[in-house]
């Protein structure tokens, strides 16, 4: 099977042939495809890495070991969890399978949400690239780190008040979590080799994450091809609109948090710093592709609530930077 797909790829046309141009796709269709493929090729390595780390948490580490070594006070506990990204720099797409692994491995729903929202910003790669792009100029790096930390913990705290956290999850994933919490004692499972269980996790996680990634990439690509960007760029110098426009741009561009600083740097001359900060905070946590990925785990209602709170807090942060800093 593996060979067959390689052969098909090798036999298919390698370049757009001028003489065969009758067969070529219309520009916009071709560009949509190019954009979607580029998001997929960019994200999949991180997804694989996230799934492997998730398997490490579920299969190779003793059950619940991570959860046991964290502080017991819920606020301190979530604060520590929001720093876990420093040890798992897997970018936002890889964080989804990892957060799922954490939940199966004993984290509560609100703790996983905190991790999911903090890790894309509070991780070494994002910090280095943001520093490379902006240095200490205009407090952008500091605002991004503090903002990310604050938002993740506030959202985590809000969801920790939920009377029935399991209802925040899709029924399918809630069932998988129940299975995970008992599997530590399951003798049938213990007889299976760790590698075999890793393979099973790979099969199950890719069956959920890959379709979401494909759909998310297709939506991101379609939005980019059909929504003119000039509409957003015209709003750059207004303190309020620059923030909202950059958040909208972050939502549709769906660039990884590891490198979004380089991308947004090129808009530095057009947009006020508050807009840049809002882009760097909101875009790292929420965008079209991430919503599709997170929908594998959380209900639409939960995602809407997360998006609204993160959006409001990012906008407030951006406005604060524009008006105060």
């Amino acid at each position: 099977m593996v060979l067959a797909v390689f052969v098909v790829r090798a036999m298919s046309p390698a370049f757009v042939d001028e003489q065969l141009s009758d067969f070529s796709l219309p520009d916009r269709v071709q560009d949509t495809l190019t954009l979607a493929i580029s998001v997929i090729i960019e994200s999949v390595p991180f997804v694989f890495l996230g799934i492997l780390l998730s398997a490490v948490v579920q299969v190779w580490l003793p059950h619940g070991v991570l959860a046991r070594h964290l502080p017991r006070n819920p606020i301190l506990r979530r604060a520590s969890i929001s720093l876990l990204g420093m040890f798992f720099p897997v970018c936002e797409c890889g964080n989804v399978p990892l957060a799922r692994g954490f939940m199966v491995g004993g984290f509560t729903v609100s703790e996983s949400i905190t991790f999911l929202l903090a890790a894309p910003i509070l991780n070494p790669i994002t910090i280095i690239t943001t520093h490379q792009a902006f240095g200490w100029d205009g407090h952008i790096l500091v605002a991004r780190l503090l903002g990310g930390f604050l938002i993740a913990n506030v959202v985590g705290w809000l969801f920790s008040k939920h009377p029935n956290p399991q209802s925040l999850l899709t029924s399918r994933f809630a069932a998988a979590c129940m299975l995970g919490s008992t599997s530590g004692h399951d003798h049938a499972h213990n007889r299976e080799s760790r590698f075999s269980r890793t393979t099973e996790i790979f099969i199950r996680e890719t069956s959920v994450i890959m379709p979401a990634l494909f759909i998310g990439s297709a939506v991101a690509a379609l939005t980019q091809v059909f929504v003119p960007r000039s509409v957003l760029l015209a709003l750059g110098s207004n303190p309020v609109w620059s923030v909202l426009a950059m958040m909208a741009l972050a939502f549709i561009v769906a660039v990884c948090s590891n490198v979004d600083a380089f991308f947004v740097l090129s808009f530095g001359s057009t947009f006020l710093p508050g807009g840049i900060v809002a882009f760097l905070v909101f875009g790292a946590l929420i965008d079209v592709k991430m919503l599709a990925l997170m929908r594998t785990t959380f209900t639409s209602r939960t995602l809407l609530q997360i998006t609204v709170v993160v959006g409001l807090m990012s906008a407030a942060l951006g406005l604060l930077v524009n008006y105060v800093a």
């Binding site: 390698a14 071709q30 190019t34 493929i37």
Partner: peptide, 10 residues
């Protein structure tokens, strides 16, 4: 993804 020839943006 497997059969369409790769190309640049237009």
């Amino acid at each position: 993804m497997v059969i369409v020839p790769p190309t640049t943006l237009s």
